[in-house]
Design a binder for these strands. Structure first.
Length: 420
RNA sequence: GCCGAGGUAAUCUAGUCCGGUAAGGUGGUGGUCUCGAAAACCACUGGCGACUCGCCUCGGGAGUUCAAAUCUCCUCCUCGGCGCCA
């Protein structure tokens, strides 16, 4: 959520921002028109209430008589007018709230303007793409022949888009989660394990609600949603809280399953690249506003360290305005190379949300003791999404004989060097 | 699921029966005093706005009323007891 004062005083900045993000600008005009009428009626009601407060006090001090009766009659009309205005104000507030909740964050000046993912900028590539002296297999072929992923039985218990890890597959998943968490703890994060279901307030706080509501599993009876990304429960742990300056920065990491309905998406991706349920380790940072763009680089480095340790080839993209998430002001995607099809797979997204989420979730800090509190800056990044890391490992570490080498850093977690 | 107790400002609490400007304690800041500190005393210490002024604020919403923290109805949350239960 943006500061409404910015929308009021710099509407053209917001209009250009919406155009850069490839979004309809109608929302801005609806806001401006509802807001100016709201301000006018609110002011009128303030003046009417002042009259009513004063006269009501007089009434309370008057004895029975005509003067009292006539003032009561007079105030009855004032009360009616206030009530009518309030009804209209409530309507306008719905419009205003709908607009402010749906206007995205303002991209940082360093973010390239572009219409969609084709205009993202590759910052750099690291690591050598694997070269094969045999025909590399697809990850699902490897997984099935090694019997480490059971696609059919996953479908049996939950339906299309779900799968079951088995044997060394399940163990590799657990090894990766532990390796990721251990690395982040060393990097200074505190591990948390929050609830896997989240409520509407939490989803609103980080910006998934309302604009992504159809992408989430909804437990209607209890008003809860299955976690779409650990960003939601972890960031909202501190909803409505004020940090003292000496407690900053706060760094959390969490392993948590994530759920996506993926409606309208083609189920043409074989294997585990796009699934309804996947594990992910997430990093979340709460920082002083002056530092957030520098911290974004650090956060991205924290994710890259995992990939470098696994010795996987990857590249870093700076997302353009048209492809960036709703709440971000700046976002890097990190993509792993999957050699079987020579494609890049997004395994991490690292974003600065500035005060956009903090304003929605009311997360503040006090710059100096006893001073007025200000909104904090929030950042998060995946470190990393499990299925795509698994794909990259299976495809990059495969051998001619169908076995898969275990990346060196995972050997102590796996207790073996070869899956075969 | 049933029963009970609660939700008031940064925090703790009073006020609710019986409607009339949200009282007080703690913590905090500033001041007086002091060589300095403590204590004591004084002032300030929720949000918003078009900012000498005003409006809003007692979990949320609706209603009654000239007027609602207070009365009525609905609802959310927390804690406890019972029940069920991995």
């Amino acid at each position: 959520m943006l500061d409404v004062n910015i929308i009021r005083t710099q509407p053209e900045t917001i209009r250009q921002m919406l155009i850069n993000r490839n979004k309809d600008t109608g929302i801005l005009d609806r806001f401006l028109s509802a807001d100016s009428e709201w301000r006018m009626l609110t002011d009128e009601n303030n003046r009417l209430r002042k009259v009513r407060n004063e006269v009501s006090l007089q009434i309370s001090k008057l004895g029975k008589g005509d003067e009292k009766d006539s003032k009561i009659v007079e105030m009855r009309d004032v009360g009616e007018k206030i009530k009518d205005n309030d009804a209209r104000i409530a309507e306008l507030e719905l419009i205003r709230d709908d607009c402010t909740l749906n206007i995205p964050n303002i991209p940082h000046t360093s973010v390239p303007v572009g219409k969609d993912s084709t205009e993202n900028v590759v910052i750099y590539e690291k690591g050598e793409k694997r070269k094969f002296d045999f025909a590399p297999k697809q990850h699902w072929e490897i997984a099935e022949s090694l019997d480490i992923i059971d696609f059919d039985r996953g479908v049996k218990v939950a339906g299309s888009g779900f799968y079951c890890l088995k044997g060394d597959g399940a163990r590799l998943e657990r090894a990766l989660i532990n390796f990721f968490l251990d690395t982040h703890i060393r990097q200074g994060y505190t591990e948390v394990f929050p609830p896997i279901v989240v409520n509407k307030a939490a989803l609103t706080g980080t910006g998934q609600y309302p604009n992504l509501k159809d992408d989430m599993y909804h437990i209607e009876k209890d008003g809860l949603f299955l976690n779409p990304t650990a960003e939601v429960p972890v960031t909202n742990l501190v909803m409505d809280e004020i940090f003292e300056i000496d407690k900053l920065p706060v760094l959390y990491t969490a392993y948590l399953p994530s759920f996506r309905r993926e409606v309208g998406k083609h189920a043409d991706t074989k294997g585990i690249i796009r699934v309804h349920e996947f594990n992910k380790v997430e990093m979340v940072r709460f920082v002083h506003p002056d530092t957030s763009y520098n911290v974004l680089e650090t956060l991205r480095g924290d994710a890259e360290e995992l990939i470098s340790s696994l010795k996987l080839p990857y590249r870093v993209l700076l997302l353009c305005t048209g492809d960036m998430g709703f709440s971000c002001s700046k976002c890097y995607d990190i993509e792993l190379h999957a050699p079987a099809n020579d494609v890049w797979l997004e395994a991490s997204s690292c974003s600065n949300f500035t005060d956009f989420q903090a304003r929605r979730a009311r997360i503040k800090f006090r710059p100096e003791p006893h001073m007025k509190s200000e909104f904090i800056h929030t950042l998060n990044g995946s470190g990393l999404a499990l299925p795509r890391t698994m794909v990259a490992i299976l495809e990059n570490y495969q051998n001619r004989d169908g076995t898969v080498a275990v990346p060196e850093v995972l050997v102590k977690y796996m207790g073996k060097e070869i899956i075969g």
